[in-house]
Amino acid sequence: MKNLLEHTGLEPGRLHFSWISSAEATKFVKVAKEVSAAVRALGPAKYLVKRRAEVV
């Protein structure tokens, strides 16, 4: 899925996958920080964003 989305133009770094157990609080914090830093660095999303219908 990640490969397909990035193939069709999603920026690498926008989509993240992780497997975190409920017991892994520190891993959760670490991943959440990484994700938010990576996404913030990319700026606002352009891909697959629907603001208002572009149908004329």
Partner: peptide, 14 residues
């Protein structure tokens, strides 16, 4: 397509 930049890919598929 894989060689294209991210924006070009986006534009191509759009």
């Amino acid at each position: 397509i894989e060689k294209m930049s991210c924006d070009d890919k986006n534009a191509f598929f759009r």
